[in-house]
Amino acid sequence: MSKQNHPDKSRRNFITAGAAVATLGLAPGVKFIDVANAGNEPKAVTSEKRWGMLIDTNKCAEGCNDCVTACDKEFGLNETVDGQKLKSRPEQQTHYIRKVKLKNKKTGHTLSLPLLCQHCESPPCVDVCPTGASMRRADGIVKVDMHTCIGCRYCMLACPYKARSFIHEPIENQKPYAPRGQGCVESCNLCVHRVDEGREPACVEACNKSNHKAIYFGDLKDQNSVVSKEMKKQASTQLRDDLRLNTGVRYRGI
């Protein structure tokens, strides 16, 4: 064999050793936060649960606005900064939940119902989001991660229920559990801070308080939860079920 077929191996060894040294040099700078946090780390939510609601339109009273005011109060929606008037028009202002009145033109029968984010299993708002800010948590709660929201409002167009709002004005004194800011899209998040604590959403609480008891809340996957039991009793409908979104919020009496 000629010398040309065997290149100088000592050079190759030197380079390998150099690479090893470089790796060792990097190692102490790398920090494994997971390891440091291992002591008291809470558990992530899983798909073993799916939070949902059943709204009984027969019980929902016309003219009652308690769920909406409770929601506004919980999240501090449409509050003014330093006593200045809001510049945005009422239709631009944030609504997580709103009361809708339906009228059958032929029979004249009217219905009143609260409309909020339907927490779909396959949400169109999540499909269209270019940044991944519009998201569905493993336990079925659809919400906006405002850290990554760029305010393009594509999700507002995609939502068939008009459930999302854009924040037009600067906000101060946000609630510590519900941070929100100008330039982001927001919507009902099923009071995620309350649900994680084991409490029920603000609108449900308000509805029960006013003694209408039109909203049932609970885990749809748990057969013994209040919602599941109520759904078993009578027929319930999804709004726009032709879209096959498998909504987490169902209605009775529509």
């Binding site: 002591g39 809470p42 939510v45 998201m135 948590r137 493993a138 336990d139 991660d145 850290h147």
Partner: peptide, 19 residues
Amino acid sequence: RKETTQLGKRWPKNVLKNN
């Protein structure tokens, strides 16, 4: 922030260490 907003991990408020 990623863990809390996306995975729903809530650190209890009375635990201060590494929170």
